[in-house]
Amino acid sequence: MEFDFSPVIDYLPTLLQGVGVTLLIGLTVAVMSVIGGQIVAVITLYTRKVVNWPLRFFIWLFMTTPLLLQLYFLYFGLGELILIPAIVVGILGLGFHYMAYNADIFIATIRSVSSGQYEASRSLGFGHLRTLFYVILPQAFYRALPQLSNNMIIMVKDISVLSAIGIGEMVYVSQYAISVTFRPFEFYITIAVIYYLINLMMEAGQTWIERRAAYRR
């Protein structure tokens, strides 16, 4: 057995482009799923059943079925209705999936903020919405941070799955290179290393964020 990483070097620009796409998708989905998750959580908790039951159903559905199945459904289902680029389908699919997971966390942490906080805020003269925005949600957010950052670390690894619907992230661009160079081992090892480095950085970031947020909880 002999390894030859020179094809990987040859295709480095392509691979780096894939890394760029991966990071871009990661960032977009992170923002979308955290903000969206919080909105979904608030709507779920503070609206009538006609509104929140369907939302609860979707959270549950996204959490009990595999990401890839959801991606196939969106890709072929949406693709049948309107013409949209695969990357949008991918971002929406991954975004909805993690929005559900994040909403689930926010629902729990919003509930965990004590009713004493609510009463204290109301007694100062804040209305229901202001109490929510100034008192409840900030506390819930800090409490959610450890699990949120965990979810985001898992999410970034899931970006690799988007290659299945033809999105040009790392795995997909390598697959083309592999079909030309016949060096799957070298390429997949390289991708694994890149993912591992991203993961290490995210874990370091997580530690940093948590240390900064610790005294706000």
């Binding site: 997949y188 090892i189 993961n199």
Partner: peptide
């Protein structure tokens, strides 16, 4: 834990 399961799968199967 730091690498995607999907990449592990591709690495072992194709690599």
């Amino acid at each position: 834990r730091g690498t995607p399961y999907f990449v592990q799968l591709l690495l072992v199967f194709y690599g």
